[in-house]
Amino acid sequence: MLPLIARRILATIPVMGVVALTVFGLLHLTPGDPAVIIAGDYATTQDIERIRARLGLDRPLLAQAGLWLASVARGDLGVSIYSGLPVTRLIGQRVGPTAALTALAMLISVTLAVPLGVLAAWRQGSWLDRAIMIFSVSGFSMPVFWLGFLLVWVFAIQAGVLPVQGYQPLEAGPWQFLRHLVLPAVTLSLVYMALIARMTRASVLGVLREDYIRTAFAKGLAPRRVLLAHALKAASLPVVTIIGVGFALLIGGAVVTESVFAIPGLGRLTVDAIVRRDYPVVQGVVLVVSGVYVLLNLVIDVVYVVLDPRIRY
């Protein structure tokens, strides 16, 4: 088991290398001179030269790539063009709200979506199943920011029970923290919930056809017990995978949700950086978030190997 895990961990190193090179390559493969575009429409020649020098764009391409990889490996993501602060510090300041938002959204979706998926599979073909699946495809098609505004309109503007926007850190008290976070988290969780419910249903349906489920019924076990102890256990592996894969969706949604609810997280940092054409910050956020995504999937794969002795790479 251990060599397997070690091999899986080693396999993420080239992936991260490729991600770093891709983020680097974006700057050079897009049409036009990046220094001119980053400098903006009203830049002077000196501005452009300054940006070119700061980003190292005046060096040969291979040297730039090498320097970029080396600095990323050291944990140095460069300096923001706009504020002059190190990108790592900017990201550090903004990680908290995004982490809180995605964690709460993940919690909400998993606790609601897995039971929904199991129910749909259990009552396959019934109106309940259809209702859950219609909910799922609608959730999948729902524009995140539109849903956010709908919820704000209903719960904050019309009912007035929750704040319209803003963020309170946990230090401000758990009640204030949750009050501000509940609408964004519900908004963000819908897409993810749709995805997980769909996957859980498919996966439980697959397991329910197995022989040992029939055996479990035949020996007289209560349906609830068969469903929860036998079927869900076996069906949980693909569900855990989709929780990991869907994290990319969640992060994308977080960027939009943070914008709607004025949450000072990584998404806002990215959007502000794009408006200011602060490319080092954009690069840094993309790299860090992708790193988290790759790591999360690594953890899930490792958990898999521990849980399921059949898995071999």
Partner: peptide, 24 residues
């Protein structure tokens, strides 16, 4: 496939945003 793995590891909206940051 290595390049594709790298692209897949970047959440789609972030990748699109990063590209838009470099284009008009």
């Amino acid at each position: 496939m290595r390049v594709m793995d790298g692209l897949m590891a970047i959440p789609a909206i972030l990748l699109a945003l990063a590209l838009m940051a470099l284009m008009r």
